[in-house]
């Protein structure tokens, strides 16, 4: 279970002349409970705080106030050396894929298992399965720059699944994809959710969110303004 309690995130911004310090509120007193196995869409316009919400979850930065916990583990006060351990339990799919350019598709996925100390035979067995799941078996030896956007995003997804995460975060995963590839990716996310993984999908793509027909949380200027059980994208 993921629990946000009055989570607030503020970014300091220097004035144009470097003078008065202002603060931009990215998340404003967000309290949110997400049960294990849920599929939740976080919607809202650019800058509404969707990415920030996800970033707090994989400890890219701490909340300014309030707390965030995963299965009772309060990650607000996480120590730097614990962060890698946390991240090995949370798969993240980014809008810009964030693939390692110097490594092949296979190696990118394998890397996620290597960092967790998975034995080599297991990596050799699991990675092809993951690539098959995302329909990339043919591309195993290609480098990221040889892939189309859809293939790159599916590689990113396969990597996110490599350590069998309990939670999968997808930050605008369809942002760089055409409608067809976006649809494919969504089907994969739903399939993964069916297998028991909690999925958080941040998106401003109306068609995608409407197709999911699951819980929708709407953010506006950092605040949760609406929650729907099986909602559609509404602002």
């Amino acid at each position: 279970m993921i629990l946000f309690q009055h989570a607030t995130k503020m970014y300091p911004v220097r004035g144009a002349q470097g003078g008065t310090k202002k603060e931009i509120v990215a998340l404003d007193d967000v309290t949110l409970e997400i049960a294990t196995g849920e599929f939740v869409s976080i919607v809202g316009q650019s800058g509404a705080g969707k990415s920030t919400l996800l970033r707090l979850l994989f400890a890219d930065e701490p909340p300014t106030s309030g707390s965030v916990s995963i299965d009772g583990w309060d990650i607000t006060t996480i120590r730097p050396w614990q962060i890698p351990h946390l991240r090995r339990q949370i798969g993240v799919v980014f809008q810009d894929f964030k693939l390692l350019q110097a490594k092949t598709v296979f190696e990118n996925v394998a890397f996620a298992m290597e960092v967790g100390g998975a034995p080599t035979p297991e990596i050799r067995r699991v990675v092809p399965q993951l690539l098959k799941l995302v329909n990339l078996s043919e591309n195993a030896d290609q480098y990221p720059w040889q892939l189309s956007g859809g293939e790159a995003q599916r590689t990113s997804l396969a990597r996110a699944l490599a350590f069998r995460p309990k939670i999968l975060l997808a930050d605008e995963p369809t942002g760089n994809l055409d409608a067809l590839h976006a649809w494919d990716l969504l089907q994969l996310l739903l399939k993964i959710n069916k297998l028991g993984t909690t999925v958080l999908l941040a998106s401003h793509d109306e068609a995608i969110v409407n197709a999911v027909k699951r819980r929708v949380v709407t953010l506006e200027r950092g605040k949760v303004v609406k929650e729907q059980k099986t909602g559609t994208y509404e602002l």
Partner: peptide, 18 residues
């Protein structure tokens, strides 16, 4: 030239020594 790769490795959960 590798600083982005390093940032990505961290996001994937690689420890500093790794």
């Amino acid at each position: 030239g590798y600083h982005e790769e390093i940032a990505i490795m961290r996001l994937v959960g690689a420890s500093p020594w790794f």
